[in-house]
């Protein structure tokens, strides 16, 4: 009997939790959607202001913004060549490091006596 009563009380609460919970999840994400839908506009607005100050000589500013694949490939190639070339301008200092061959004591009795870690 008690069980039935407690279940009956619970159900209204459960429906409320479900409805409120699902709504809140939606509200949270809808707010994020709203913010990020408008964020580019907001950022562009700032940039547009800056752009206005720049005097474009070109008749077709939109066309200027578009880069064909070939142009970007050419730019990429030029950059790549430039950075590869940089490698050649390295410092002329040459350091010769003396490599001393360490003495190998594997069969030396006297070494074993003198350098016994124990």
């Amino acid at each position: 009997m008690n069980d039935v009563e407690s279940l009956a009380v619970d159900w209204s609460e459960i429906w409320i939790i479900t409805a409120v919970g699902y709504t809140v999840v939606f509200i949270a994400l809808v707010l994020l959607v709203f913010v990020f839908k408008n964020l580019p506009n907001f950022l562009n607005f700032k940039f547009r202001k800056k752009e206005k100050k720049v005097n474009y000589n070109s008749k077709d500013p939109e066309g200027e913004k578009y880069l064909s694949g070939e142009v970007s490939a050419a730019i990429g190639m030029a950059l790549s060549l430039y950075f590869k070339e940089q490698h050649d301008e390295e410092s002329g200092i040459i350091t010769i490091k003396r490599v001393s061959r360490t003495y190998s004591p594997w069969s030396s009795k006297i070494y074993g006596v003198n350098n016994n870690p124990r």
Binding site: D10, W11, I14, I17, T18, G21, Y22, V25, F26, A28, L29, V30, L32, V33, F34, V35, F36, K37, L39
Partner: peptide, 27 residues
């Protein structure tokens, strides 16, 4: 990818029906 098309975020919210449906089922 989320920033580029924010409307897709709603799908993530819709799938949470799994959470609340299971809640009712568990009770």
């Amino acid at each position: 990818s989320l920033i580029s098309s924010p409307k897709l975020m709603l799908l993530g919210a819709a799938a949470q029906i799994g959470v609340f449906g299971t809640f009712i089922g568990a009770v």
